[in-house]
Amino acid sequence: MSKDSYLSPFSLATSDVLKEMLDINIDGSETASEGDLFVSQGFIVVVGFTGGWKGRFFLDMSSETAIQMASLLTGDDYDSVGDEDVIMSGAELANIISGNAITDINNSQPGLNIRLTPPSVFAGDGISMFNVRLSSSSALMQTNIGTIKINVAVEGGK
């Protein structure tokens, strides 16, 4: 399984969901391979997947971007990344992005039957995540509210 084959559906879903739910356009995007260490910009949502593929999806951004994203989604103003609505907005966006991506993958490869786990959210300075036995790939997306980084890791991915 190539990195493109598992990163592309998530990149496409991220672009579509940000446009449809928040009216955010992706101004530029680049892909990058990751080593064992993933350093967060300050706010990261993790969604796991099981079934035909085992792995996980990260939606990562700065705290400021997370706050702006929540404001765009709910129409309310927030001043802290610790606000429950900010945390839940990030979780819901990551859930929808990964749900849409996995739907496309399941439909294009019948029998995979990949399912998602509920999202987990981590916020704070200096958060590092280690990839244990997982190969991962990232896409960095430039938007008018900051850089959004997605990272997809699949067991056995190359």
Binding site: M21, I96, S98, G99, T103, N106, N107, P110, N113, L116
Partner: peptide
């Protein structure tokens, strides 16, 4: 009303009598 809407899930939903399916994000 779900972000997950692959063919298997929709088939399962219909078999349980769910009347319609709406994908997230929805308008």
């Amino acid at each position: 009303l779900s972000a997950m809407g692959d063919d298997d899930i929709i088939k399962d939903a219909k078999s349980r009598g769910i009347d319609d399916v709406c994908a997230k994000p929805f308008k």
